[in-house]
């Protein structure tokens, strides 16, 4: 089948990825344990979990780099386990492997064209360079770029065949905050262009910021799925009222009858909020010496969701 013909998606043309009961074992070690999920056209999907949870194994099965031990996975309607289907998948997907580096001594443009030449059709390198905002570095050799810029080259390379779905495996790991934001900017541009993006990450804020749908994976199993809001609403726990830098003294000054408050780092007081309680609490605080303190309402994050679901937090390094 040529690149120009539509991929066969019998009856479910908007399902870009369909995974059912997928497993992968390495000897006795179960890396992926019977997971199921699907990805709809135009979605940014985040596979969120700590290191070793099974994210990369799953994404590499979808990229036809590994064979599943059990279950089924289809990408664009093609079965990842069938050799003939794998060839079709490879033509249509874009991949940014974890820790990817392009070829050191080729320039940005040459690298894009190098990987583009592997496909029958490739997008114009200059347009991709523009998309990832690397116009000034176009003729710079890859080895001379900073980590963030290198990652943007990787993104351009992953888009060179105008893929139907882009797999980005931990695209911001090891980058400084600014470089991470730049990569996020590129993903947002992809979303606005209607691209389907499959993203793995251990950064909770990244998934929350970028993803339409998040699946949380831990020990090879998906423990929750939904939009970030749904996950937070369902598993994030209560909102918290924070009184900034009130200290122990502030605890004593709290009016009676409030939910149990706790003192956090930097002397912040945290009060869990039940629905509809906020106005009453604020009014009662107005009667105390705490009325001139800075007050904010903190919404739970995916960090809280992960904590509530697993009893632990994921570190910056992903452990």
């Amino acid at each position: 089948m040529s690149r120009d013909q539509p991929a066969p998606l019998p009856g479910q043309s908007d399902k870009i990825v369909q995974v059912e009961n997928l497993s992968k074992k390495y000897g006795d070690n179960i890396a992926v344990n019977g997971i199921s999920f699907s990805l709809t056209k135009g979605e940014v999907f985040a596979f969120l979990g700590p290191n070793g949870a099974g994210k990369t194994t799953t994404v590499e099965i979808l990229e036809c780099l590994r064979n599943p031990t059990g279950g089924q996975a289809k990408v664009l309607g093609y079965d990842v386990s069938k050799r003939s289907d794998q060839a079709e998948i490879r033509k249509r997907i874009g991949v940014l492997p974890q820790d990817f580096n392009a070829i050191d001594r080729l320039t940005v443009r040459e690298n894009i064209n190098y990987f583009g030449a592997m496909f029958k059709h490739q997008l114009d390198a200059d347009k991709l360079i523009e998309l990832v905002d690397l116009k000034d570095k176009r003729d710079e050799q890859f080895k001379k770029l900073s980590g963030g810029l290198k990652q943007r080259v990787g993104l351009a390379v992953s888009l060179v065949n105008d893929p139907d779905v882009v797999f980005l495996d931990e695209p911001t790991t090891g980058l400084d905050p600014r470089a991470r934001r730049d990569v996020w900017g590129v993903v947002e541009r992809l979303r606005s262009q209607g691209k389907t993006v499959f993203l793995t990450t251990h950064y909770m804020d990244e998934a929350e910021y970028l993803a339409d749908i998040v699946s949380i994976i831990d020990h090879g199993q998906i423990i929750a799925s939904g939009t970030p809001d749904q996950l937070i609403d369902t598993h994030g726990g209560k909102k918290t009222l924070i009184i900034r830098e009130a200290g122990e003294e502030g605890l004593k000054q709290l009016p009676p009858g409030l939910p149990k408050a706790e003192l956090r780092n930097a002397g912040d007081i945290a009060i869990p909020l039940n629905n509809g309680e906020l106005t009453n609490i604020l009014m009662s605080l107005g009667q105390t010496p705490l009325h001139d303190k800075e007050i904010e309402v903190r919404r739970p994050t995916l960090d809280d969701v992960f904590l509530n679901l697993t009893g632990r937090r994921v570190s910056e390094e992903g452990n």
Binding site: L96, N101, M118, F119, N161
Partner: peptide, 13 residues
Amino acid sequence: ELKIIKKLATTPL
């Protein structure tokens, strides 16, 4: 090590 081969293996090459 640079994952260039892994990347190439995901293309039709």
